[in-house]
Design a protein around this nucleic acid. Structure first.
Lengths: 339, 339
DNA sequence: GTGAAAGCGCTAACAA
DNA sequence: TTGTTAGCGCTTTCAC
């Protein structure tokens, strides 16, 4: 492997001069710069970012820990984060925690060892024990999607409480009376937010809160299937189902097909967190869309802000709004069937 | 930042002994090991993987360059790759090329500088110029999804030619006569494979090849929309449309809704490369599914094989089969509507 | 079983 | 504008 010393020798300069050229510093004579660049090209020199990272105590790497990259919302987050990282000339390491605190802890420790310059984390261990152990002090962290108890850390999240309320009011305006809320993980703050928005909408409409219509799940399709089966077996089934995320709604729709329920004739369906653009087929579902891409970008930007002036700036919470995308799955478009 | 020297000092041993303990080497007396471990714990020592990487000339990082993480197929690939990397104790850097050779080249160069131990690449520059420049010699590369002209490099791909043929035979068996093939990028080998499978199926059935029914696109929803509009305006429109990938089929369905065509009553729709499990709503579309997760895993495994015995083993091509998942979007289930 | 010396490749800090 | 020295934190080599 050719090093900067080889380049320097060939150009007849000292290593530090060659280094200055490689790093595009200004205080180098044009002729010298020229010679160094030629030498580097002839030798096919490739700077060693590992050595540079060791010397400068900056690796040029950031890490992103999400629950699952195949979730459309987190894929969007990852794309936003990666775009922002690229624009800053930094690389992004990806980790899936699969909602497992042990995986999360392993990744945090491991990324600490790799001395990444910062971490964006979608926390799974909400107690935050892993957050304090096994990480180098002063390693900047930005939480995404949900917070951690007692952690004084920056947070980027979406106000799904307000979003869910908007969505439910939309359903109420369309005349629905028995709206069900399904699919989130009972121990996650994001589920509580959604339920609270749901409850607020019903309360504002003067409707009672029926606990039978609130069914937690796993933020996956299976939870949607189970919840739907349970709901449709009730003496008084719901006339609308709000799914807590994109995967859940797949399960809901799947089970409704199995039960031979038509959407929206027999029952309405809406969802939270569909990240697909309105122009696609999916927008035919009425959804509250979280701006995953922008959230990913914002998280990386916050990380850089921390890297800049150190840890003395106050902890920040960035709250995005969820947008209502009206489709036809709740009876909005007369005569158009979804399933 | 506490270093291994600090740990050694506190434990009253030399740095190298502390290093041996940290790396779990065997030739250390139990009592010594104990002392070192305690010292490390007390100081909250976190090994520096950057320094280790410099010394050992192995960074413990792999890179994955795909076109877009929000594509369901590549998200699946990424998940498989990451799982395999995790099991091997290695981290994964992610890069989106967005089908732009300039981005691809930037990432290749940059990952070379970071001295990643290997790269899995979904190539966008099929001429392969970027593949030879700007990369450290002997940096192992595995291509995924598609090859590069004249590159003697390992390749993991899926036989979508055979898969498409199977899918088209399925359509022919159901009585369809005018099958359209839409959506792939004209310059990509993956599109040619799919078209060749399509042509083979028609030829075997003794049907003529109508060029009007083959419409290239961009592997995105827009291409599906445009192709569908064009096809349905033909004097003799198709009775079935095969979309080249998951995004394309979204556009196809969207446009069919706009044209008030029902699926499958008025027209059948099928797709290649849907990665969702058969239990979900989407399986109601008839698809040929590429095993993205397994392909991602296989690519990482191939990389490790190269890392092991060097570059002397012969170049390998790993071909996965695409599996037909029968849904109801081509008239298989009587009376069930898709859209 | 343990340690001393050296160096991986690079760049701050300090000369000149 | 250029160079010298030193050291980032670790582990290989060799010696004891």
């Amino acid at each position: 492997m050719v090093s900067i010393e080889d380049v320097a020798r060939r150009a007849g300069v000292s290593p530090i001069t060659a280094s200055r050229v490689v790093r595009n510093q200004t205080n180098v004579a044009p002729a010298t710069r020229e010679r160094v660049l030629r030498a580097a090209a002839e030798l096919n020199y490739i700077p060693n970012a590992v050595a540079r990272g060791l010397r400068q105590a900056r690796s040029g790497l950031l890490a992103l820990i999400i629950t699952d990259i195949t979730s459309p919302f987190f894929a969007d987050v990852a794309r936003g984060a990666e775009d922002a990282a690229r624009e800053a000339g930094v690389k992004l390491i990806l980790g899936n925690s699969y909602d497992d605190p042990a995986f999360e802890a392993d990744y945090l420790r491991s990324f600490g060892e790799h001395r990444v310059d910062g971490i964006v984390l979608v926390p799974t261990d909400h107690a935050g024990k892993t957050l304090r152990d096994g990480l180098p002090k002063k390693m900047p962290i930005v939480l995404l999607d949900r917070g951690v108890e007692g952690a004084a850390v920056d947070l980027v999240r979406c106000d799904t409480s307000a979003g869910t309320q908007t969505l439910c009011r939309h359903l109420l305006d369309l005349g629905h009376q028995r709206i069900a809320m399904v699919g989130g993980v009972a121990s996650y703050p994001t589920w509580h937010e959604r339920v609270s928005g749901y409850a607020a909408a019903l309360s504002n409409a003067g409707l009672p809160l029926d606990q039978d219509l609130i069914v937690a799940g796993d933020y996956k399709a299976d939870g949607g299937v189970a919840a739907t089966r349970q709901l449709m077996a009730l003496p008084a089934p719901p006339d609308a189902i709000v799914a807590a995320n994109a995967q859940t709604v797949l399960g809901v729709l799947d089970e409704l097909v199995r039960l031979r329920c038509r959407v929206p004739e027999d029952i309405s369906v809406a969802a939270i967190d569909d990240p697909l653009p309105p122009s696609t087929f999916w927008a035919r579902l009425t959804v509250i869309a979280q701006p995953g891409y922008e959230m990913g970008r914002a998280a990386i930007d916050l990380l850089f802000a921390r890297l800049g002036d150190g840890s003395d700036r106050p902890v920040q919470e960035l709250v995005f709004a969820a947008n209502l995308l009206v489709g036809v799955s709740c009876g909005e478009g007369i005569g158009k069937r979804v399933i």
